[in-house]
Design a protein around this nucleic acid. Structure first.
Lengths: 179, 179
DNA sequence: CCATAAACTTGCAGAATGCAAACATATCGC
DNA sequence: GCGATATGTTTGCATTCTGCAAGTTTATGG
């Protein structure tokens, strides 16, 4: 039925006249440092989610929120959002979700009743401890392939990357030095 | 208005009777290796998106797809999906989006006409090269804080983490050795 | 040729997101 | 005190994204 005759050969458009110099692929994704970091973290996130999702009904966002509350109880919703790098609205909903699941609770009875400080219920604490056990196991597995010296080197390098990326994020792409 | 008298004090529920041993926070997110990797890559992704979003109308998914096509032209939709770690359906739509933007094109004229191999148009190639320039600049900025030795160490450690995380993802959380 | 399989694409329902507006409470200036 | 204004958080709603079932097109095997 395709009446409009499909041109069987490559059209006569020149397939890029080959600039000199910048010629090989301009960016090999698999070798690009940020992508390599992403791949590892995404795989780990997927594995961990494969546990806490079916077991506790959590999503990646709610797990992260749960972990922040568990790690630093007493924060308010906005502070959690900032700490977890999520936005205020989504965090508000995620907290509501965690409360519905019975994992988090608001403490009223503060001076400023606009902000409610959050903490985990007993069930939430249990879930957090359980998932954290697995998380630590994963970290151990990842690090088991590294020598002690390599671990130290990685730790230091990551600290530098953390600083550098924070500065970068603060300045935006426009702030890149022209090199 | 709130007629139901709000109990001003903390309720008499015991705030966790303090298990011995496992007592300090079970997981400090900021120190957890996968989270540290995530933070850096997310910041970078955000900065880069701040450029290609407004400039080219791309989302993170479409940028990633664009980069894969640019890096390895000739792949089919399914192969791209596997390479980029995205799912088939989403990739199909993303490709349609890229074609609507004039950045990608399907080459018909193959033997098996179910699979169409994809490549970038001239405009797509230009966008890819432009964004890649910025991406390389970002990588340089990140690495500029590291000594040559540190870079090598990071590179090696990341290679190990890549292997280990791939194995982990293949086996799932159940496959963790009991330690 | 017909049956079945493979590679994609489309439709659609439900979930997630982004943003404006609403709420509730505090605080400040008078 | 008491409006005016600011702050912390939630809600409503339109838009977009996802996940999955079903559809389309092309191959392949009997």
């Amino acid at each position: 039925m395709p009446e409009d005759a499909p041109p069987e050969d490559a059209p006569p458009e020149d397939p890029a006249p080959r600039d000199p110099a910048l010629d090989a692929s301009p960016l090999a994704l698999e070798a690009w440092l940020p992508y390599r970091l992403f791949i590892v973290s995404a795989r780990v996130a997927g594995v961990l989610e494969g546990y806490y999702g079916p077991t506790y009904g959590l999503t990646q966002a709610s797990w992260r929120t749960l972990a922040v509350i568990g790690d630093r109880p007493g924060l308010s919703a906005g502070e959690i959002a900032r700490a977890a790098g999520l936005d205020q609205f989504a965090t508000s909903r995620t907290i509501a979700h965690l409360m519905k699941l019975g994992f988090a609770e608001r403490a009223s009875a503060t001076r400023d009743r606009r902000r409610a400080s959050l903490s985990l219920t007993r069930a939430g604490t249990g879930a957090f401890a359980d998932i954290a056990r697995l998380a630590r196991g994963i970290e151990d597995t990842l690090e088991s392939g590294l020598s002690a010296a390599e671990r130290r080197a990685l730790d230091g390098a990551l600290a530098r990357l953390d600083e550098a990326s924070a500065a970068l994020a603060a300045r935006g792409w426009r702030g890149l030095e022209p090199r």
